[in-house]
Write a protein that binds this DNA or RNA. Structure first.
Length: 428
RNA sequence: GGAGAGGUCGCAUAGUGGCUUAGUGCACCGGUCUCGAAAACCGGAGUGGGGGAAACUCCACCGUGGGUUCAAAUCCCACCCUCUCCGCCA
């Protein structure tokens, strides 16, 4: 969420930034009008409240002195004040609700280093790692490889749950588990992240905090339950909300967490896209990285977080590139985002396997996550960052495709073998 | 699921309708003292919002939302959460 005072003071800059994000900016005009109304209402209601408080105290004093008649007279006075105050409060509540409604749907302001553009064609590649594998046979896609090795069963998953679900079996299930352990170990041992195992079901306030609600409810699975609970679309939600409504100490920052979780996404509106295989599923596993950073350090922290995610691909020997997203391609809460894309031989293309964002104070304001510098300084909002480190399902299929052999078997990357009981190859 | 207790300004507590628009202790910040520190003493300090150039000032906030009252932390209703005991359960 953007800061009310910031929007008020920087209306033109905000309008420009939102326009770059392809956000309809007309709504901002109402904003100014509502704000003027709101402040006038507050001023009057505060004054009347002050009068009421004074009168009340005087009545108290009169009652004590036994002057009932005078007290009764003053009561009349207050009754009128109260009506007017109730009226003003109702108006203020309405204005504030409208402003909040509008503010909560505005996306974050892009950082100045982000390229302006309408969509992904304006993204810029910042670096590339590894060489694209060459096969002396026609490479198969992961569905064919996985089903051939009997480690992937999509048909039965459809019977049991429906489209966009999958079943891993034997060495396939083991590979998934190995990847989770491997990623968590690398992040905790070498990069100083603390492991979190969060709830996979969260409340509305948490989803508001990270920005999924109110705008993107259609992307979520909501539980049929009076409590208004949802399955998490990413561990970013529970982990970023860890210190919601708290004031931390500046010396605690940065805080770095890594969390494994399944992720549940309804994928509404992506019918027909990536229908084959594991690329786009309703349920997938992910190891997430989350940081709270000091505002002055957050963009540096984004660089290291992105490198921490890339390291996994490098240790697994998977070719990839890193792309800086343009203003038109970024997510709602992000001020700056790098996507990491892994090479997928069957598609002859790089596909997203991680998305690393600095959300600056956008989520922190929605979730009220603050810190205080030494002594009695005013609380400030932390900057929150998150990135996949990595999407496990996509890593799984990238290994199958990049490490496939002519005979249909798949080699296990060396770094992963200790996590697979030293298995070197998955074969029939 | 049943019975009971409780949620107060970082922590711990006081406060059952107006001497409290929240007291006290600890922690915190500033000062006095000291070579320096500790102790002691003096003073300060919550969050959000409105007005103001500023000094400052006003309003709201005692789990959340309603209600009663001239006046609510305090009374009433609903909900959320925590703890204890019983039952059930991976």
């Amino acid at each position: 969420m953007l800061d009310l005072n910031y929007v008020r003071a920087n209306l033109d800059a905000v309008r420009l930034a939102l326009d770059a994000r392809r956000f309809p900016v007309e709504a901002l005009e109402d904003f100014v009008r509502l704000d003027v109304k709101r402040r006038a209402t507050i001023a009057e209601s505060d004054t009347l409240n002050a009068q009421r408080n004074t009168a009340s105290r005087e009545i108290g004093a009169l009652m004590k002195d036994g002057k009932r008649d005078e007290a009764d007279a003053r009561r009349q006075e207050i009754t009128q004040l109260k009506e007017r105050i109730a009226e003003l409060d109702a108006r203020r509540d309405a204005s504030e609700a409208q402003m909040r409604g509008l503010l909560s749907t505005l996306p974050n302001i892009p950082h100045e280093s982000v390229p302006t553009g309408a969509d992904e064609t304006a993204n810029t590649e910042v670096r590339r790692w590894g060489s694209i594998p060459e096969f002396d046979f026609t490479p198969r896609d992961h569905v064919e490889i996985g089903e051939g090795l009997k480690i992937l069963d999509l048909e039965r998953a459809t019977k049991i749950s429906g489209a966009r679900f999958n079943i891993l079996k034997g060495a396939g299930a083991q590979l998934e588990r190995a990847l989770v352990n491997f990623m968590l170990d690398v992040h905790t041992r070498w990069a100083g992240y603390t492991e979190i195992l969060p709830p996979f079901i969260v409340n509305e306030a948490s989803l508001f905090g990270t920005g999924q609600l109110p705008k993107f409810e259609a992307d979520l699975f909501k539980l049929n339950d009076e409590r208004g609970l949802y399955l998490i679309p990413t561990a970013e939600v529970p982990v970023t909300n860890l210190h919601r409504d708290e004031i931390l100490d500046a010396s605690d920052l940065p805080l770095k967490w890594t969390a494994y979780s399944p992720c549940f996404r309804s994928e509404a509106g992506s019918h027909g896209r990536d229908t084959r295989g594991l690329i786009r599923q309703h349920q997938f596993e992910k190891v997430e990285l989350v940081k709270y950073a000091l505002p002055e350090n957050s963009f540096d922290e984004l660089e290291t977080l992105t490198r921490d995610a890339e390291r996994i691909l490098q240790l697994l020997g998977l070719p990839h590139r890193t792309v800086l997203l343009s203003t038109g391609d970024m997510g709602f809460s992000a001020a700056k985002t790098y996507d990491i894309e892994v090479w997928i031989p069957s598609q002859n293309a790089f596909r997203e396997i991680s998305s690393c964002s600095n959300c600056t104070d956008f989520q922190a304001r929605r979730a009220s996550i603050r810190f205080r510098r030494a002594g009695g300084a005013k609380p400030e909002y932390v900057h929150t960052l998150n990135g996949s480190g990595l999407a496990v399902g996509r890593t799984w299929l990238a290994i199958l495709e990049n490490y496939q052999q002519a005979d249909g078997s798949v080699l296990i990357p060396e770094a992963l073998q200790p996590y697979m009981n030293n298995l070197e190859r998955i074969e029939i």
